[in-house]
Each structure stands twice: as structure tokens, then as C-alpha cells.
Design a protein around this nucleic acid. Structure first.
Lengths: 254, 254
DNA sequence: TCAAAAGTGTTGGGGTTACACCCATGG
DNA sequence: CCATGGGTGTAACCCCAACACTTTTGA
């Protein structure tokens, strides 16, 4: 049996699905789109689509991201343009029955973006929204056996979303990834509120300040101050070159 | 354009590749097989194969593992049989040109196994071996532009291997995964030598002992002692129920 | 003046490092 | 007896949690 023989292997459809996270109104939110076709018609789902025949996986993810949000992805592996959100591969989901139509293997990607204007989904603003993660995942469990319409996300997207959220939660512990949720210039307090929203905990502002300003390369002063959060003016920072945090930021144990 | 239309998406071949790691003679080793066919005929490659049409990704990885090594995989997600090696999904590689024959997306998996008798590759012992990862990855860079025959692993397998090794190196920091490299019963010294081999560093035996025995749930006494390492008899342990280590094991910085 | 947020100083405790020291076996 | 690895004790040190306290703005 030659490896060139097309009958030697079954054909698969390959897609990318996106877990796009942001922090809005002190809550961790994910981008979801409403499905216009069966299966799961009218239900919310993660954005995504087919990988093209000549396209790399990360390129497909970046393309879908641009199509759905207008965001410009910044894959650390292939340093792209600025203004970019963080993009990384998350995991691959290939259960034979995950799509009732055919055999689909989906390579999920994780995107972390600063707070943005309302999303657009191919120009249709009604069919895309930022939803609090807590709501999406709680609905998954609590409403599962009640109302089919209020049930989980389409396909296995609740699992993918949960995996993406968990990845984000652990990765901001030991990396500077939390700055991907912030605008280019931000204050220490704004960065702290990112951690608090993603982890769902309260952090001591004084110790947090010492920690992040005392880690070399994490933050660099941007030269100005702002009072947009009220109170005493706060120094503005940009993300520094450091990508890993050692020692890590400690997450309080609930 | 209906999603049911087969012409709406290009067909892909989907494979699993395995990064199977073990510790032999105080060195971290990976399982490689010799390719019998072009492309890369005669070169070493990671074991792997096509995913079947009705098969889950982790099931395909476990099947390939059994076929190549006789190992029984123990996927934490789907608790299987005992005697099992640790198996987890690593990452997915889908560059359009990674296989010159056709469009292949490979879902790489990471396997951690205790030291084993010489591997068998479909009964052919000559075509499979444990190779020190240092050698496999050094050859990748040092010999790349000299002798084509001594060049890197086939396809993009050097990258996949490097990613798998990096995953293993970081994961033993904050999890009890290092015990997957040990036989069912092992001593603290044997576990320490696993860490030393994977990280390529020397650890203080006294502090290591205190650390692992002082972490609740990491190790449970198995009730006996052994002198197989020489010196004073050492207590035997089994892996405890704890899977995450908090605080983590600290890796000395080079 | 007061509330709110930004910062700094200080103290106590847990965990790690480095190393002195003892224990138990095989050769 | 001595080399080898196993295991305990201890002091210095680093980092973090907790919290008192000062600074600087807007309302």
C-alpha cells in the first residue's frame, strides 16, 4: 500500500476555531457568532472556518480573525504587524462525531485582544457579540437539560472555550500575556484589573504594583500620566520586552 | 454555498505523530523509526500514521503507540488501563509544504514512558531505536549543511521533537509528571535522576528529598526499600494522587 | 473636605539554598 | 574500613502577604 494512494487514508475537513478573549466591564468575555445554518441554527458558536488548500494553520486563524473582527493578529512565531492581538494555537479537536455532517478536525486558536468596539461579523452586527465567559460556561452546565434553545454553545465549542479560558488563566501567571488585554499604553491599575477579571479574584493593589514594576523588562514607562480611572494620576506604561515572568505572578487559591 | 458541498473545502490527510520520551542511562531519549520509503527514505522520523475515518485523535495516538512499542497508553482524559504511559496532545503542524506528497495535517502527541526494553517497530528491531534528544536536536543544527544523510529528522520532526521536549521540561516543574518516567515503584534518588536527565542539571539530593517528600500527595510510601542504586537502602514510593505541584519544583537557571 | 486611586515603607512568615552532619549498606 | 548513596538539621536569604501610611487628583 503506497503512501501516495489516496484510498490509503480517509479525507478530512480541517477548520480553525477561534477563542477570542477580551476584558470588558471588569469581566472576561469571548467573541461568539450566531449560526445562520443548520446544524445548531440560531445558536451561538465560536468564529471559525475552513482552512484553505494552500494555507498554513496560523494564517487561516489570522484570516478568520480579520474577517470576523477586523483585528490584526500578531503571531509571536511569525512576527507580523503592530496593533496586533496575541494569537497562539490552542488544541485540536477531532472526535468523529463532533460535527454531524462530516468528519471535521478543528484546530482551535486562542486570541487575546484589548477591549474593542462592538464586533462585526461580515458586516452583520447582530450576529456577533462579546459574551461574558462565566455566562457562556454556566449556561453550558445549568441549562443543559432544560431549554434546548438556551443550551450550550454549538458543537463542542463549550469545551474549546473552557480550554482556552484555562490556558489564558494559567499563562498570565508566568508570562507577560496579560498586557495583550490592554491598550498600547496602560496603567498598573488597569493591568491589575485585567488579572482580577481573568482570575475572578481581588488582588492587593500595593503588592501588585511592586511586583510588576519590580520585574525587569515587564513594563517600561511611556512617559505620561492619566487620571481616566479617577484618583491620583497614574503613570502610563507599555509592555516591555520580557515575555516570561520569573518568579511568576501568584494566583490566590480562591 | 452549502456547507455540505464537498467542493466547498479541500480534503486533508490527518496523521498523528508521536514524541515518545524516556530516560535511559541518565539521558533523555526519544523513540525514532527509520523510514523505509521516500520521501526521506532511510532517515529517522518520529513514529506515527494516518488517523482512521472513525477514530478519535487520542485513540489514533494510542493505537500507533501500541503498534510501535507495545506500550499501553494512559490518557488522563479517558482513564484507560494501568501500566500505561502518559499521553497528551502536543500541538498540530499543518504547513502546506511540510509533506511534499500532499497536504497533511499532523496532530502531534507527547508520550512519557519509563525505561523499557529495546523497542520493536512492527517486529523489525533494526528500524526503531531510542536516541538521546541532545543528539537528535544537535544533529539538526550542526550537521544541517554538511552531510545530507546525517541531517535532521525527516519532515518537520525536529521541530515537533523540540516542542515535545520543551513541554516535558516545563511540565515536570509544576506537575507530578516526572513519575511517568519511573517504574511503578521508585526511590527519591531515581526520581531526582529523572529531573536531572530531563533538565540537564544537577540538583541537591538533600533539598530534593525534602521537597518531594514534603509535598502532600506527591509520593506515597510503597512499604519496602531497595539498594539497587548502591549505598544505604532507600525507601520505595509510588506516585500519589496529586497531579499538580504547588509550589512548583524550581529549575535552576542553567 | 472627602472619596478614590496611586504609590511607598515595614514587618512577619513560608520556602529555598547551601552546607554540615549522621545513617546504612556493599565491597 | 571506606566509598556510596540516603536522609536530617540549620542558618542565611529571598519573596510574598498584610497593612499602616502618604500622595495627588476630581467632585
Amino acid at each position: 500500500m503506497s503512501p501516495y494512494d489516496p484510498s490509503a487514508f480517509p479525507p478530512f475537513a480541517v477548520t480553525v476555531d477561534l477563542v477570542v478573549l477580551t476584558v470588558r466591564r471588569h469581566a472576561l468575555c469571548a467573541l461568539v457568532v450566531r449560526r445562520g445554518e443548520p446544524p445548531f441554527q440560531g445558536r451561538w458558536a465560536l468564529p471559525g472556518g475552513f482552512v484553505r488548500g494552500d494555507e498554513d494553520l496560523s494564517a487561516a486563524a489570522a484570516r478568520e480573525l480579520a474577517e470576523e473582527t477586523g483585528l490584526c493578529a500578531h503571531d509571536p512565531a511569525s512576527p507580523g504587524s503592530a496593533n496586533g492581538a496575541h494569537l497562539e494555537q490552542l488544541a485540536t479537536y477531532g472526535d468523529p462525531k463532533r460535527d454531524p455532517r462530516m468528519r471535521v478536525v478543528s484546530v482551535a486558536h486562542l486570541v487575546l485582544a484589548p477591549d474593542l468596539p462592538a464586533p462585526r461579523a461580515g458586516g452583520d452586527a447582530n450576529s456577533a457579540r462579546w459574551a461574558p465567559v462565566e455566562e457562556l460556561l454556566a449556561r453550558d452546565t445549568a441549562f443543559a437539560r432544560e431549554d434546548e434553545q438556551e443550551a450550550p454553545l454549538a458543537f463542542d465549542h463549550a469545551v474549546i472555550l473552557a480550554d482556552g479560558v484555562e490556558r489564558a488563566r494559567s499563562k498570565i501567571e508566568y508570562s507577560s500575556l496579560a498586557t495583550a488585554f490592554c491598550p498600547p499604553e496602560f496603567t498598573v491599575g488597569e493591568l491589575r484589573r485585567v488579572y482580577e477579571a481573568v482570575w475572578g479574584v481581588a488582588l492587593d493593589p500595593r503588592n501588585f504594583h511592586r511586583k510588576v514594576t519590580g520585574t525587569p523588562g515587564f513594563l517600561v514607562p511611556a512617559g505620561g500620566t492619566t487620571t481616566r480611572q479617577g484618583g491620583r494620576p497614574a503613570q502610563l506604561f507599555r509592555a516591555g520586552g520580557a515575555t516570561i515572568l520569573n518568579p511568576p505572578m501568584l494566583r490566590p487559591e480562591v
